[in-house]
Design a protein around this nucleic acid. Structure first.
Lengths: 337, 337
DNA sequence: GTGAAAGCGCTAACAG
DNA sequence: CTGTTAGCGCTTTCAC
């Protein structure tokens, strides 16, 4: 059963295929009656426009490539959810590619997108990536590229992220306002900008409130529940005093809570704790974990909207790249109140 | 800056574009030396094959449409993660569409896929959908369709799901083995097969172990934390005895735990609780919530593999639709031990 | 081993 | 208002 084409419709109606094409595209100077007849026949014959042909000819695919590390992390799937929702309601479709945090796959994804002639790419950079030429190449080729969350400034393209510095500041200041004087910060040893910014926000908040920045209270390690546990154990072992903990993300904060509970140190009475990312479990554990929300769905929506706005203006790379920085949201819960 | 085509390569090398095309596709009767020259020039000119043109001509897009209710639910994003991973390593790409649980959007998604000439569709049906003709039409048009999780048998296509009946049986039997005699089941009023199956498994487990199926212990409502809370409150208000609760999914189970805690009923001593779905929070709350794991990533991987196997055989609809039923995994935690 | 030619299904001038 | 024509960039016979 061959697919029906505009030629089939034309034959049935005894008109030319070009008239059919125009009728289907609501071309102004086609008679209303012909349009009606054509559209009726299209339905009758189960016609489905061949977008490949149309895209090939017109040069427009209405497809945007979305390249993310993985969908198996709620942060990314939420953002992609937001992107797809906005793109969809604007007539765009999403071609999806996961880099698995790998440099080589990131390059492969971009290649695929290029071959499919996507009208642009929205991406968050893989952890493994440290050479950004594949992204810079996109810019050189004038392929619209928009980054979110894991940004690299030197690429020089529009992006959407949250204010991680502000989030770190906000979390720390919250603990200070709750009366904490010796606040621990747990971060990562990975060289990722957003985590460094949270650390910076922590330091500035301490300084603003006249508290010392004490390096013995700053820990780093590999993102995990264990990291939180280990840091607390180490603090206790070394008899280091502390009354607050700001973990750079919620799983580490969870480890902190678990270890404190095991050591019978009361939260929030003796130690107050706050995490970062607003993972689903935080609201439901005991004590519930204070955190900073990253507005993930909104991040996706804003990314899509900014992208659409910029390609509509048709001068994507002609001016200073536009940047959207979303405000993090403080979510105080039992662990810090 | 126009995109480079095989004609550009041909011109540079003083051969015809048709030779270039064959060289790039590793056609057997092209000289190794020409192939080399062509490929070198392709790289030098930054050539990217135009898949639109190639797909239009060859009739193969290597694109599969993935239509899911939303990516904002970890179940679906995990499955899509699995699908993309397997498809990707087999040279297929994913076009993504979210139905938002809406019938109209589901139809729109299928239409889009058809227009893009995807080689098949993998989908989980929207809750709102009760008429399945858009899916049945796909089958009539010989477009490969594979369903996962939210299955409808009458559509008559291959699918992958877990054994929800077995999962319900397993959860209930687990509570019975832990000593429960009066086990509550909380389900939904929505007409969704998988939930009905869990209910059926619950009943059969009771019967197998000589326990009565008591309708006053079976509740239904709208999936939410509140549903769990309300059911417990109602049980207590009406003085109905119970020593176990099997919630049809984890959020409802969470509500159960919360309300029991509020009423100072001890878990697991007085009442044992189990949920379903293995949501991320379950392991971290207190008490941790026993549950049934649905093997989401594996479900996606199996879906993709089955799909690929069937289209490779080139007789997608020629025999009885193949079905994969994955085993649910019992995850016992504190709430039931 | 390479080339010539047709055509996938559509868009978009241009003509009439 | 409708028709003619020329491709978009590739695959795929068939010829030499």
């Amino acid at each position: 059963m061959k697919k029906t084409t505009i030629h089939d419709i034309a034959r049935e109606l005894n008109i030319t295929f070009s008239t059919v094409a125009k009728a289907l595209n609501d071309h102004p100077r086609i008679a209303a009656s012909t349009k009606e007849a054509v559209k009726e026949m299209a339905i009758k014959l189960n016609y489905q426009q061949n977008k490949l042909a149309s895209s090939l000819r017109s040069g427009k695919t209405r497809i945007v490539g979305v390249l993310v590390p993985t969908l198996d992390v709620s942060f990314f799937s939420s953002v992609v959810h937001g992107i797809e929702t906005v793109m969809n309601s604007n007539g765009y479709n999403i071609l999806l590619y996961q880099s698995k945090e790998l440099y080589a796959d990131e390059i492969r994804g971009i290649d695929t997108f290029l071959q499919t002639r996507v009208e642009g790419i929205i991406s968050s950079i893989a952890l493994q990536t440290s050479d950004y030429n594949h992204f810079i190449d996109l810019k050189k080729r004038k392929i619209p590229l928009l980054l979110f969350d894991r940004i690299v400034d030197e690429i020089g393209v529009p992006y959407v992220r949250i204010d991680d510095y502000g989030g770190g500041f906000m979390a720390t200041e919250h603990l200070i306002k709750q009366g904490c004087k010796r606040i621990v910060h747990i971060s990562t040893d990975q060289n990722v900008t957003i985590f460094k910014e949270r650390l910076q926000g922590y330091k500035e908040a301490l300084i603003k409130h006249g508290l010392p920045v004490d390096d013995s209270l700053i820990f780093t390690g590999h993102l995990s529940i264990e990291l939180g546990r280990n840091c607390i154990q180490q603090l206790v072992n070394e008899n280091i005093e502390f009354d607050g903990v700001f973990a750079f993300e919620d799983y580490t904060g969870l480890g902190v809570l678990k270890q404190l509970k095991e050591l019978k140190i009361n939260v929030p009475e003796q130690v107050k704790v706050i995490g970062f990312a607003n993972e689903a479990f935080g609201a439901h554990i005991t004590p519930s974990l204070s955190t900073v929300d990253q507005q993930t769905v909104k991040m996706g929506e804003e990314a899509a909207r900014l992208f659409l706005k910029l390609i509509k203006e048709n001068k994507y790379y002609e001016k200073e790249p536009e940047k959207i920085v979303l405000d993090p949201l403080l979510i105080p819960r039992t662990s810090s109140e």
